[in-house]
């Protein structure tokens, strides 16, 4: 699987964890960080399912959710 085909995850950090400061820890577990959303305390990144499993075990992480797709809601 090429890097571009890896699943994208939304990592929601635990309360009080600052997003920018958490990046290095997430990267050390194999996450390829795409976006850091400081106001929301979330990080968007790509990685294998194994990486996602590792991240879910971190105290600094509240949830790891596979990215979904949405669409405009006109008829």
């Amino acid at each position: 699987m090429s890097d571009s085909e890896l699943p994208v995850y939304v990592i929601t950090l635990a309360e009080g964890i600052e997003a920018t400061g958490a990046v290095s820890e997430l990267e050390s577990h194999g996450l390829q960080v795409k976006r850091v959303l400081a106001a929301l305390g979330q990080v968007i990144g790509q990685g294998s399912e194994q990486v996602a499993t590792q991240l879910r075990g971190l105290d600094s992480v509240q949830s790891v959710d596979a990215q979904r797709t949405y669409r405009a809601l006109d008829e």
């Binding site: 994208v8 939304v10 795409k34 976006r35 959303l37 400081a38 106001a39 929301l40 979330q42 968007i44 959710d65 990215q67 979904r68 797709t69 949405y70 669409r71 405009a72």
Partner: peptide, 13 residues
């Protein structure tokens, strides 16, 4: 007309 969490959450941020 479609987009992902990555875009939408970045938009909220």
């Amino acid at each position: 007309g479609s987009g992902s969490d990555s875009n939408i959450l970045a938009g909220i941020n």
